[in-house]
């Protein structure tokens, strides 16, 4: 366990666009348990030749927690997200959401992948309106919320652009606004910023972390980037190589309102990344060994 810093000086994150009037949340951080994996395991393939992706996962996630998930490639990181979303059923054990086993598409979660899956034939505002249209909200309400969301993610002035006219970062913002539009409790994010350059990625990380803290969203965030896992997470779940099992759950000892711009030299941050490296490096070395026999 890394000692809690006494001299932590990360004062407030940079100013955020005002979320005034955005009815996206607002209970105070409740520490009730929201998601629970009990002996969760998932195999793919046929009964004769099953490919075990994950096995024996026990994990409890509290409402409002930001969980990052790292592990060697193919260890079933995404499997945890898919099971939480109810896209497939567990082969072993069960996944509880709000105390109830997940059965079928779990509409209290939102999913974001590396590909933003925006609709190219819709303009930015219409893309953000998509989940609201699906929920048959009144037109006036949709227009109002879309406007608020555009401001919230910092896309003001781009509502009338086609997605193909946006830069990579703006597309991510648009996808994030669409995700927040229908106000899911939990955001499932599968390497959402994987394709962005370092600067843009940092900006998106700051924005995501701030929004989620403010809106008290629970987040499961899969990444292959150790720095990202530490910078964003309240806790980081480290999985073993296939079949993926929990190797360790690392509590990241950084404050909830951390300043991501100043982490580089933060001692706790450095210690946590070092620790994650030491957990993952042996696997990485073995993988390399397999590739070059």
């Amino acid at each position: 366990m890394i000692p809690r810093p006494k001299t932590e000086t990360s004062v407030g994150a940079p100013p955020q666009p005002s979320g005034r009037g955005v009815r996206l949340h607002s209970e105070n951080a409740v520490t009730a348990q929201l998601i629970r994996f009990e002996g969760f395991g998932k195999s793919f393939g046929t009964a004769k030749a099953p490919m075990v992706a994950t096995r024996g996962i026990d994990l409890e996630i509290a409402r409002g927690e930001f969980i990052t998930i790292v592990g060697p490639s193919g260890c079933g990181k995404s499997t945890l997200l898919n099971a939480t979303a109810g896209i497939f059923a567990p082969t072993e054990g069960r996944v509880l959401y709000g105390g109830v086993p997940v059965a079928g598409y779990n509409q209290r979660v939102g999913y974001m992948t590396q590909s933003d899956h925006l609709l190219p034939w819709r303009k930015v505002d219409a893309n953000i309106a998509l989940p609201l249209e699906i929920q048959r909200r009144p037109k006036a309400e949709i227009a109002r919320r879309v406007e608020e969301l555009i401001e919230l993610v910092g896309l003001t002035g781009f509502g009338n652009s086609y997605v193909s006219q946006l830069s990579g970062g703006m597309r991510k913002r648009c996808a994030l606004a669409r995700l927040l539009a229908y106000d899911p409790d939990t955001l499932l994010m599968d390497e959402p910023f994987g394709a962005l350059d370092a600067q843009l990625r940092l900006a998106m990380q700051v924005q995501l972390r701030n929004l989620c803290t403010r809106l008290n969203k629970t987040v499961l965030f899969v990444t292959h980037d150790i720095d990202e896992a530490v910078a964003l997470g309240d806790r980081c779940v480290v999985l073993t190589g296939r079949p993926g099992m929990v190797r360790e759950i690392v509590t990241i000892d950084l404050p909830r309102d951390r300043n991501l711009y100043r982490l580089r030299s933060n001692r706790q941050y450095i210690a946590a990344t070092d620790h994650l490296w030491s957990l993952l490096a042996p696997d990485a070395a073995r993988e390399e060994g397999e590739e070059t026999p």
Partner: peptide, 25 residues
């Protein structure tokens, strides 16, 4: 994209939504 279809089902999309909002366009 099956991923897109899954993402939309998580938003609560019915078959008619998928058809009019994704498949047709």
């Amino acid at each position: 994209s099956r991923e897109l279809v899954a993402i939309m089902k998580l938003m609560g999309a019915r078959e008619s939504d998928l058809l009019t909002k994704v498949v047709l366009p």
